[in-house]
Design a protein around this nucleic acid. Structure first.
Lengths: 194, 194, 194, 194
DNA sequence: CATGAATGAGCCTTCATTCAT
DNA sequence: AATGAATGAAGGCTCATTCAT
């Protein structure tokens, strides 16, 4: 039973984030103007600036919130032995994280050119690198490395691309994960074979 | 034996296309202004409008030129039996096409949000769909379909992402292709197993 | 024996005035935003509006406080005989007043365009006029009038400009005053010569 | 008989400069918006940006044009012996330059706070310093230095302030110059006396 | 084949100010 | 005595596009 105050307190702030992310994901970052965001919320542009310093700041705040699970995942994984089982658990958890913040990740993937010179670009790149380092060793055979990276990226691609394929969403997600798990397993056997 | 006129005529046109594609790929479509393109070529913005009707038209013309190999590939494949061998040859040729027009495909991948409501968006989507239909059957098990799509998209991703992995470019390209070929092979055996 | 309340009450008010004057003098009136003033004081903009009706009102209140000595000087001088000795004493006292409220006068001089359509513009102009009438007669020869005005303005200019000249601050101030005193003396002899 | 082309060619550019300087001088730099300038010229804001890169650029271009005589004066004077006669000639010419670009100098004086962090601020400061070095020696007695600087600044002040004094404009200008000339003469005799 | 000049729409951002609490 | 939230107006600037020459 939250007090009305507390509830309303950051209400607008959250609504801005929600609408912004929705529009950013739907239309792209540059094509979404602050005017549009403001209008959807029935506030003025200036109101946005009360809550956020800049347009980019809105995005940063969204990312900071939604990226947290990824960070936790990375931290957790770094404390685990680098076994196949760990790697597969990383993928499973990453899959959850991805689907849990689908809009943000869709945005990140579809706006790479834009994101590249925004602050969150570097921040995202860093996480991807950390993840890929958890899945593969720098001295592994090339093919193994590529299988691992493919496992990672197939999940990114899978989120939006597979919409053309018919089937239940949950089922598809499961299948995507299964393929990814298979890929790291193969990568692992590349290692022993080499 | 082209007339000097003809030669010079397409010269500027081509230079515009080259510079535009370079900038589109480097900075993104929206962040590249016609002013910038014109300045690099030491002509005025108005000159661009002599050669192209709109900004988008520049992109369309580039795409029309560079997409031709893909169309040929699709046409060729549609006349072949849908065997594993054909599918793998599709991937091999697609790999060539991708690396042959790397800037364009990099652009397409990094500007999806933008491209989506440009004419070339639909045009590209159509080709991807045609390709994926060549690689997989709609009634195939989900996992097989996903493996095929992953084969396709891993090559897209591979173009830029693998730059962080050390190794000779040609070698990496070979490895990426090998993994993709392997994926369709697995997809094929999913079929027989089902 | 001020009550604690009273003491604290004017505390914030004064701090606002201090910070505002400092920033106005440093950066100019328009380039100093209320946000900036508020931030320096670790209060909100709205707090400023508790103490002052408008931005201009802050300036007016500052000016009202710091201009008092000038008013006293004028009142005093108007009761004196219009001798050279009086005029020189006016300059001496004006010099004190100027240095005593250096920030304000620096602000007034460096923001003339702005000040012109603020209330204090007129108020300042009135005082300058009063002062100049104390130093010179309307029917005096042109040169005499100019010497008197120059005496006045040289002190304004002197405050900031002479910082490039090396030397002890007090010494410079003395020299500036000396030159000014000399100028009115010359103005006076212009009179008798005419 | 200029060709219509040549005449019209930079017509707009010049008209922008004229209107801008007029408004800058009348209202101040910050209080003059590009919208206002554009409206007076019956063009759009964007047209201004065709001719000038930024608002500040308009000012810079104006200053570059109107400051030329000052630069010439400085160059000339630096090639002359540093006699009293030279110094007085400097003042005479400076007086001409000042009245010839009265709007610009009025602007500079009334917008010092603003000008300070504009490019032309430094540029103006440099010239003033050059001029003052022509009029006075760094090792001269303080009073002499102040008299020289006062000579210089009295002319600045004189341009606008003396409007309150009645009398023919030309006559007033002559008187102001006379007082200034007198001041450097006195500065010079301070030297020999010391 | 290309330019010079201009436009209209729109963008992000900042500001002084208000008002209920 | 002060704040949190919001507003309306405006500002400088950039962009794709047009058109007469």
């Amino acid at each position: 039973m939250a007090t009305p105050h507390q509830t309303r307190r950051s209400d607008t702030r959250h609504r801005i984030q929600d609408v912004a992310l929705k529009l950013f994901a739907e239309q792209g970052y540059e094509k979404t103007s602050l005017r549009e965001i403001a209008e959807r919320l029935h506030v003025t542009k200036a109101a946005l600036y009360y809550h956020f310093k800049t347009k980019e700041d809105i995005l940063i705040s969204i990312s900071a919130d939604l990226m947290a699970p990824i960070d936790e995942l990375i931290t957790w994984a770094q404390g685990q032995p680098r076994t196949l089982e760990t790697k597969q658990e990383v993928l499973r958890r990453y899959c959850d994280a991805l689907w849990g913040a689908a809009d943000l990740f869709r945005f990140l993937q579809e706006n790479q050119a834009t994101v590249r010179d925004l602050a969150i670009g570097e921040s995202f790149k860093t996480r991807i690198k950390a993840l890929s380092e958890l899945l593969t060793e720098p001295d592994a055979p090339l093919t193994a490395q590529i299988r691992s990276m493919t496992a990672l990226f197939s999940m990114h691609a899978g989120m939006h691309v597979m919409q053309s394929v018919e089937g239940d969403a949950e089922e598809k997600r499961g299948a995507i994960l299964a393929v990814a798990l298979d890929l790291v397993a193969q990568a692992e056997s590349d290692l022993t074979r080499a």
